[in-house]
Design a protein around this nucleic acid. Structure first.
Lengths: 204, 204
DNA sequence: GTCTATACACCGATAGAC
DNA sequence: GTCTATCGGTGTATAGAC
């Protein structure tokens, strides 16, 4: 099944430009607009270059997705090292620019087997990260730990953040201020302004 | 410019079959797979029929979207007449089958101006519906009405429900049981088990 | 590493026969 | 109301020149 076609180097600038092109097309025009031609145009390259650096369009898509998920996980892990982790995580997920890309990939996962598999992995991984930290935050509150399960809290933050971010990008604003206020009130209950006693020791 | 082409009747069975075809393609293969040919195939018709019943593919898409949003609004309004409205609304939004279609349209709104406009309308409308009812439910609780704003509560239910439903359709299950439990606990605080004498299917 | 040229399939849309 | 035939454009992917 492996093609005989030669492939370019992994560290090539053009290769990176093509992956940037994929993200650019996804953000602006959605996955229906993805093609070797549209992607290459964003990168300022000819469309045949896609097939010099990748075996198929799908390979380019997957390489871009893996790079994207790596970045997201990195950002989530970084957020958990912030003074108020849940507030930081909320900021990551509700960012309008990223939400657009995240949602595009999430919906694409419904029809692309490779994307689906990677999405399941990233979804569970991103929620697993820092679960103990959330458990610590939930412990001293009056909230029942069995009900406010750490994973459920992460799920709520990521989905609500994702939709608020996506809608913001869409130009929808109704209810957003109220929603953000509600979420921040909830997070403030878990993470009051600066808590010296439970300060996180910065890593490294 | 308006085309000279003649158009079929609004109440035609083939016209309805074409709209069903659009939903079918969206659910199974996503909006990237939408074409006059794929849609007509689902409907058991030739692709040229699309242009007998609709001026453009975009017109077919919009007609389907309007039909879809009408149905969603209808379901939301119906839910608000249930014994426990918020529980019913949650069931509507977290339904995996509908979530797939809802999300497909939501993401499409990022790149299609007509869909975007209609989405903004439905989004705000669906949250406005029954706002007074939610306000009534929130009133007797200890929860601050200024924080737990009715619109924010609706936003939380629809976004969290939408993502949980979509992920279920994707085959993701991690954290879902915990999330559903958390949501239902919250809703139970607002809508306790109905008073004795009123028929409620056993929960217990 | 990047280009031209080329293959074949599918796209939206139209014209016109039946 | 549904069909055959057709147009120009774009899609993925490859071969081979430079």
């Amino acid at each position: 099944m492996a093609s005989q076609r030669r492939l370019g180097q992994e560290n090539s600038a053009s290769r990176t430009a093509l992956m940037d092109g994929v993200e650019s097309v996804l953000r602006d025009d959605g996955y229906a607009a993805l093609s070797a031609r549209t992607v290459a145009e964003r990168a300022g390259l000819k469309h045949q270059l896609v097939y010099y650096y990748f075996q198929t369009m799908d390979d380019l898509l997957m390489a871009t997705y893996r790079r994207h998920t790596d970045r997201v996980l990195e950002r989530i892990e970084l957020a958990f090292r912030a003074p108020r982790p849940l507030h930081a995580v909320w900021d990551v997920w509700s960012n309008p620019v990223d939400s657009r890309l995240n949602m595009e990939f999430l919906v694409m996962a419904n029809h692309n087997e490779a994307i689906r598999a990677a999405t399941i992995a990233i979804g569970e991984e991103s929620r697993r990260v820092g679960l103990e930290r959330i458990a610590q935050l939930l412990a001293p509150t009056k909230l029942d730990g069995a009900v406010f399960n750490p994973m459920a809290v992460m799920m709520a933050i990521s989905s609500l953040g994702g939709i608020v971010g996506l809608e913001s990008a869409l130009g929808i604003s109704g209810g957003h201020a109220e929603t953000r206020a509600m979420v921040e009130w909830c997070l403030d209950q878990l993470e009051p302004e600066v808590a010296p006693g439970v300060a996180v020791a910065g890593k490294g």
